[in-house]
Design a protein around this nucleic acid. Structure first.
Lengths: 285, 285
DNA sequence: TAAAAATATGAAATAAAATTTCAATCTGAG
DNA sequence: CTCAGATTGAAATTTTATTTCATATTTTTA
């Protein structure tokens, strides 16, 4: 039989808690992953009960101390899965540290959630395309520009002619010089950024392979146009705040693409790679 | 190949510990499973060193506090049989999808591990500094340039005069125009990039506040020079592959800084923010 | 080789967190 | 009502973690 986890124990006990304990229980159930980094004071504030009640709560559920509860929770949560991906949990009274913990949690969840949208076959197609390419271009604007820059840097290290710009007009001549089998990686979570779409169309005209990093949405133009779709989840974001998680998901996919390419290239290239790295360490500007 | 495992990190570092730290390290290696339930005093007694040395030991191995060490140990000891925690497990026969899963795992772990190095007080100092600043500059080179770009974009959205460049020579005049209370965010995981250090020194001469995003390493020059240190874990990477995880940790901290600043600014600014966003959606280039 | 600088260390002070105490406040049975 | 028992949080206390600082040690420099 399955060992009764501490969280379900709390759940089962819910009816029998006193009002103050119940507040604590509710808070802990809903923010279990934050608890290990919190103090009794933090929790009392957030749950609207006293510190004493937090400690009493621990005893009530049969755990000796608050510290023991934290350890128990960490142990259980390392295996647990997660589901939040928005910032509805942000509250007025949050301290910087609270906010940090929440961001960390959301980002972790975002990375995790890329597993749900990525497609094996598309990854394989991407791997194949990367090997065939001489030149690789990356294009993303606004929030996606940083991802493009990161990707560009990584593939340069692999010895590709790899370029990016967030300037539409700069991209045009770059695209004009693409040859068949070269790759354009277009990054736009929404899949509806006009500049990106125009660049993609131009690249297709030059018979380049277009890889899109975009959210899984069959109705989006970018999704429809791309030869290869590496999909990020639609991490529904609090629009007041703007997307943070989407950058994480883009980068996670870029990292994968990089590692896959690296893996395929084999040891031949690795020497040059090594050489460049040593030079960097030596010069260390 | 190295990884995110704290115990092997301690092992690898063994030669470089000071005598007192070494005693602590030895004790912890041998009794790792007991440590989460011990206090600094317990350990100092058992290891034959002072409590201060226990705390210092944590910093030396790149973990922000003793409490964080305890949490990290619990996580690892429970995760141990969940096998993967680094890239040593990359095998020839890995499919692209396998590689994707491994990258995802590593990135998630990297984000998670920032909780071990961040310091509450430094976050609060950073929050304060950001509110006082008129102008914010970001500087990072190589792999850190993408993080700087991302940060710059985010803070521009908040209405700051926010700039970045990865060109050293371009940075000079930007720094020259900084005023007291303005902020320079210097991003360098190693904390030893020469360009970055020179920029930091110049900024300090202009009385700007320097926030460093760097690994927790008390001996690194950037760590020593910065007014405020937001530390990322030393996700020691397979040097054949180059760092992926470190970008994740940088971005996680940048996201936190952004959210904290946003949170502090309050609703006054949120309107302008909204306005810009709606314009973006309308124009959607 | 001596002086100066940098590093390392633990005792003690301080800060932070957890726990306990206790007086005030409820709650409900008689 | 009223009183016994339960519940609660403010404040005191205890425990734990962290920082400071003076001293000791090593390393560098002159």
């Amino acid at each position: 039989m399955k060992q009764l986890s501490i969280l379900s124990k709390i759940q089962n006990h819910m009816e029998r808690f006193s009002p103050a304990e119940k507040k604590v229980a509710m808070y802990i159930m809903e923010h279990a992953e934050l608890v290990p980094n919190m103090t009794t004071k933090d929790i009392s504030k957030n749950a609207g009960a006293s510190e004493a009640s937090v400690v009493r709560f621990c005893k009530t559920i049969g755990i000796g101390s608050f510290k023991a509860l934290k350890l128990t929770l960490v142990r259980e949560l390392t295996i647990a899965d997660m589901n939040i991906n928005d910032f509805s949990i942000i509250e007025k009274k949050d301290t910087p540290f609270d906010l940090f913990n929440k961001v960390t949690y959301v980002n972790k969840a975002a990375v995790e959630s890329t597993t749900a949208t990525i497609d094996r076959k598309e990854l394989e197609k991407a791997a194949e395309a990367m090997v065939k390419a001489k030149k690789i271009l990356f294009y993303g604007v606004g929030g996606s520009a940083a991802s493009a820059l990161d990707a560009c840097y990584k593939f340069t290290k692999l010895g590709y002619v790899s370029m990016m710009s967030h300037d539409f007009h700069m991209m045009i001549p770059l695209i004009a010089n693409l040859e068949p089998n070269d790759v354009l990686v277009a990054i736009s979570t929404s899949g509806r950024t006009k500049d990106v779409l125009e660049i993609v169309q131009f690249a297709k005209k030059k018979s380049a392979t277009v890889i899109a990093i975009t959210k899984l949405d069959p109705s989006s133009p970018l999704y429809k146009e791309a030869d290869i779709k590496l999909c990020v989840p639609d991490v529904e974001q609090d629009h007041r705040i703007g997307s943070m998680a989407s950058r994480m998901t883009q980068l996670n996919i870029i990292d994968a693409l990089y590692l896959i390419t690296f893996h395929q290239m084999g040891s031949s290239v690795i020497e040059k790679f090594h050489e460049a790295r040593e030079e960097v360490v030596r010069l260390r500007r």
